[in-house]
C-alpha cells in the first residue's frame, strides 16, 4: 500500500522525530511511504483567522501536491480536519476544484485512524514502562469523532499505564492563532491544563497533535515541571526500534 505522508508544518520544522517514527511504523506495517515534496501548509492558520481567499491558495496548492497519492496520512487530527474542510472552500462555479478537494479529503487520514481503520492493526509491538495521561485533541476527538483509534493502539503498548486526567475534555488553549490573538485567555487555559496534568499520577503526556503538545509542553517547562510530552507515534515506536 502506498502512503503519502503529509508531515504538517509543526512536525516538519519543530518535531521531525515524530515524522521519522511515523515513517518507520508505516514501513514496518508494510506501507510504501513517500513524501510529496511540494507540500506546504493546510492553510488552517488563515482559515481560522478569517482569511479564506488566502486559505484557498494554500488548499489548491496542497490538492495539487497530493494529486497522485493513494492515501494521505498526517500525524495531526487538526490538519486532517482542515483538509476535510477544503471542498467547502470552493463555490459551485469552481466545480472542478470542489471535486478535486473532495477526492483529497476522502483519502486523507489521521495517523492513528489510518493504522487502526485502514491497516487494521492495533498491536504494534511497542513497549514503554510509564504512567501516562492522554490529551484528546479537540479537533480530532470531538469534531472529527476519532476517539477510539488512539485508545486501542495505546492499550497494546506493553508496560504503559494510562491514568485519568481531570477535565481532559477541555481545550488546552492553543487554538492556532487564538494563542497569539487572545494570549491572556490562552494562558489561563493552558495553565489549567498543566495544573490538572501535574495533579495526575502521570509523568508523561501523550497526544496526537504536535500543536497541542507544543502548547502544553511550553507551559510545563516555563513552570519548571519535568513532565515529558510525546506524540503518540513516538510512543508506538518505543521498544521496537
Amino acid at each position: 500500500m502506498k502512503v503519502s505522508l503529509f508531515i504538517t508544518c509543526l512536525a516538519d520544522i519543530f518535531y521531525p522525530e515524530v515524522g521519522k517514527d511515523v515513517v518507520e511504523i508505516l514501513e514496518d506495517l508494510g506501507c510504501e511511504v513517500d513524501f510529496p515534496k511540494n507540500q506546504t501548509c493546510c492553510g488552517q492558520p488563515a482559515y481560522n483567522s478569517g482569511y479564506h481567499k488566502e486559505t484557498k491558495t494554500a488548499a489548491k496548492h496542497m490538492i495539487e501536491a497530493f494529486e497522485g497519492a493513494e492515501y494521505a496520512v498526517a500525524p495531526s487530527g487538526s490538519c486532517v480536519m482542515m483538509v476535510h474542510e477544503f471542498p467547502a472552500l470552493f463555490s459551485e462555479s469552481e466545480k472542478e476544484w470542489q471535486e478535486k478537494a473532495a477526492a483529497l479529503a476522502n483519502k486523507t487520514y489521521e495517523f492513528t485512524q489510518f493504522v487502526v481503520e485502514v491497516l487494521g492493526k492495533e498491536d504494534l509491538g511497542a513497549e514503554l514502562h510509564r504512567k501516562a495521561a492522554v490529551h484528546t485533541s479537540c479537533h480530532m476527538n470531538r469534531l472529527m469523532g476519532i476517539k477510539e483509534p488512539p485508545q486501542r493502539l495505546l492499550k497494546h503498548v506493553k508496560g504503559l499505564e494510562v491514568v485519568p486526567l481531570s477535565h481532559s475534555y477541555d481545550c488546552c488553549g492553543f487554538g492556532g492563532t487564538f494563542s497569539v490573538k487572545m494570549p491572556e485567555i490562552s494562558e489561563e487555559m493552558v495553565e489549567e491544563k498543566t495544573k490538572h496534568m501535574m495533579e495526575s499520577d502521570a509523568d508523561l503526556l501523550i497526544g496526537m497533535d504536535c500543536s497541542c503538545l507544543m502548547n502544553i509542553k511550553g507551559r510545563l517547562t516555563r513552570k519548571g515541571c519535568s513532565i515529558e510530552v510525546k506524540h503518540i507515534a513516538q510512543v508506538l515506536n518505543e521498544g521496537r526500534k
Binding site: 516538519d12 520544522i13 521531525p16 515524522g19 515513517v23 497569539v180 494570549p183 494562558e187
Partner: peptide, 25 residues
C-alpha cells in the same frame, strides 16, 4: 513579533536544524 505573545506564558521550541523534509530526502 508574534512570538512575544506566545512566550509571555510559555516557552517556544527551537526549530530543528534538519527539518523532516531534508531527513526524508
Amino acid at each position: 513579533g508574534p512570538l512575544k505573545a506566545w512566550t509571555q506564558a510559555r516557552d517556544f521550541p527551537a526549530p530543528k536544524k534538519q527539518p523532516f523534509r531534508d531527513w526524508f530526502d
